[in-house]
């Protein structure tokens, strides 16, 4: 999701909220006579029926198409933002461009981290999060895993990833998920 659409949502939400506050407050104040300038009765209409006018089908058709298009666009902007993993590497010039898939590099980093004792599995991808390009590694650890050792391995892997990818704008985040059950070799209770 992009920041622009969040700002739009916030704007719409604020307008609706303020409208409800004003209308609700005005209704209560009107009932108790706290609006001296308000009339005793508000009358609206009647409005002539335009549905038989020649322009009516055109107007409703155009408005309908615009509303549906804008609604679909608005909805689509709420979908999770996909980051294209391919990026140009420095050194590309007229003699040839150098391209790499960052998703694959991040996933490889997670797989490398998964070789740490206590880490069961790992996967990774590049995501866009609040204006940052984030290499996100998600690893499943055993419930008995040594968190300090895992943290140290994650820090090493993150440094390796920064060296491998060498993108100045990329940030790193490691999410750990703890497995429900321990799959490490159980110690025999009876010898």
């Amino acid at each position: 999701m992009r920041r622009g659409v969040i700002a739009l949502d916030r704007l719409v939400g604020t307008l609706i909220a303020l409208s409800l506050l004003v209308v609700g407050g005005a209704a209560v104040a009107w009932q108790y006579g706290e609006l001296p300038a308000a009339p005793d009765r508000i009358t609206a209409g009647p409005v002539s029926d335009p549905t038989g006018a020649e322009w009516w089908p055109w107007a409703t058709g155009a408005a309908g198409v615009i509303a549906i298009c804008f609604g679909l666009w608005w909805l689509a902007r709420h979908l999770p933002r996909r980051v294209g993993g391919r990026f140009a590497l420095p050194g590309g010039d007229r003699s040839g461009k150098l391209v790499a898939d960052a998703h694959s590099a991040v996933d490889a980093a997670a797989k490398a981290l998964a070789r740490t004792p206590g880490v069961r599995d790992g996967s990774g991808q590049v995501v866009a999060d609040r204006g940052q390009l984030v290499a996100e590694l998600t690893c499943t650890v055993e419930p008995t895993a040594d968190l300090e050792a895992v943290h140290a391995a994650a820090a090493r892997t993150a440094a390796d990833l920064a060296t491998v990818v060498a993108l100045p704008k990329i940030h790193t985040r490691v999410r750990l998920r703890v497995a429900r059950s321990d799959r490490t070799t159980a110690v025999a209770r009876v010898i």
């Binding site: 949502d9 609604g71 679909l72 609040r130 984030v134 440094a159 060296t163």
Partner: peptide, 30 residues
């Protein structure tokens, strides 16, 4: 290179429901 930590993970914004409901309302009106 040195790894740069990303922002802390957070939950989604509640305000997006305005947008989702508003988008469906617009489509319905259309």
């Amino acid at each position: 290179a040195e790894a740069v930590a990303a922002k802390p993970p957070v939950a989604g914004t509640a305000v997006v429901w305005f947008g989702i409901v508003g988008a469906f309302a617009l489509i319905l009106a259309g």
